[in-house]
Computed example of a mutant assay.
Amino acid sequence: MSACRAPRRLTSRRRITLLAAGAAAASLTLSACGDGASGGSSQTRFVQGKNGVATVKKDDRQPVPELSGETIDGKKLDIADFKGKVVVLNVWGSWCGPCIAEAPNFAKVANETKGKGVQFVGINTRDSEKSQAAAFEEEHKVPYPSLFDPTGRLMLRFPKGSLNPQSIPSTLAIDRHGRIAARSIGPLAEDELRKMITPLIAEK
């Protein structure tokens, strides 16, 4: 009898693991290409603006998690290497309509703010092949690197209660000290993107 129990326990553990993985995947699937926005609270300590951009006061900002890996063009990239700069982190997919709509805005603002200590970085997700993401970057003349994250594992690294990416596209603004200062859920117009990062450029 005991020889039969061990396989059943192992199967149960596997089932729990698969269910947990499925729940995480479902959570990301439901939020794909979303345009909703979450409000702030006393626990999250961020304030949801009328334009869909949530911001955090300097003293309440949480550090961005470790985000590193391989870029679409096969190079190594670590967000921590950009400490001292304002980092604009955009989560996107080549299959996502709102991502296509906002791409020219990001390319333009990235080029214009590069000399002001701003570094744009993308996180490409849900593209099964790098070639899909590379074609998107070429078509839209994206001037900055993107981490290749087909399974969405990098998005799951953000701490609970922080300004974490909750849809595709999502955009995070990270201050010069490596802390999450603002987040937008959904596509951004050019003026909205500028309003999101201009205060951080002015910070010391």
Rank of each mutant, 00 (worst) to 15 (best):
M1T: 15
A3I: 07
R5C: 10
R5V: 14
P7Y: 00
P7N: 04
R9T: 12
T11A: 12
T11M: 10
T11K: 10
R13Q: 12
R14Y: 04
R14A: 07
L18T: 14
A20H: 12
A23I: 13
A25L: 13
L28H: 12
T29R: 11
A32H: 15
G34Y: 04
D35H: 12
D35K: 14
G36F: 13
Q43P: 03
Q43H: 09
V47S: 15
Q48K: 13
G49E: 15
G52S: 15
G52L: 14
V53N: 07
T55A: 13
V56H: 01
K58A: 15
K58T: 14
D59W: 08
Q62W: 02
P63N: 07
L67K: 08
S68P: 05
G69P: 10
E70W: 02
T71V: 00
I72N: 05
I72W: 03
K75F: 03
K76Y: 04
D78F: 01
I79A: 02
A80P: 01
F82C: 02
F82Q: 05
G84K: 05
K85R: 14
K85C: 10
V86A: 00
V86F: 00
V86D: 00
V88A: 03
L89E: 07
L89W: 03
V91F: 07
W92V: 00
S94L: 10
P98V: 11
I100S: 03
I100W: 01
I100K: 08
E102C: 09
P104D: 00
A107P: 01
A107Q: 02
A107W: 01
V109I: 06
K114M: 04
K114N: 13
G115R: 12
G117K: 11
V118D: 09
F120G: 05
V121G: 05
N124T: 06
T125Q: 09
T125A: 02
R126G: 05
R126L: 10
R126I: 08
R126F: 15
K130Y: 04
K130T: 03
S131M: 03
A133K: 06
A134E: 04
F136Y: 09
E137G: 03
H140R: 11
H140Q: 10
K141C: 02
K141D: 02
P143A: 00
L147Y: 06
F148D: 09
F148N: 01
G152L: 07
R153P: 04
L156V: 11
L156D: 09
L156G: 12
P159H: 04
S162V: 05
S162Y: 09
S162F: 05
L163G: 01
N164C: 04
Q166E: 14
Q166I: 11
P169D: 04
S170G: 10
I174L: 08
I174W: 07
R176K: 15
H177S: 08
R179W: 05
R179E: 10
R179K: 15
A181Q: 12
A182D: 06
A182W: 04
I185N: 07
P187E: 13
P187N: 06
L188W: 08
L188E: 01
R194G: 09
K195P: 07
M196W: 06
I197T: 09
P199Q: 14
P199G: 14
P199E: 14
L200V: 12
A202D: 14
E203Q: 14
K204F: 11
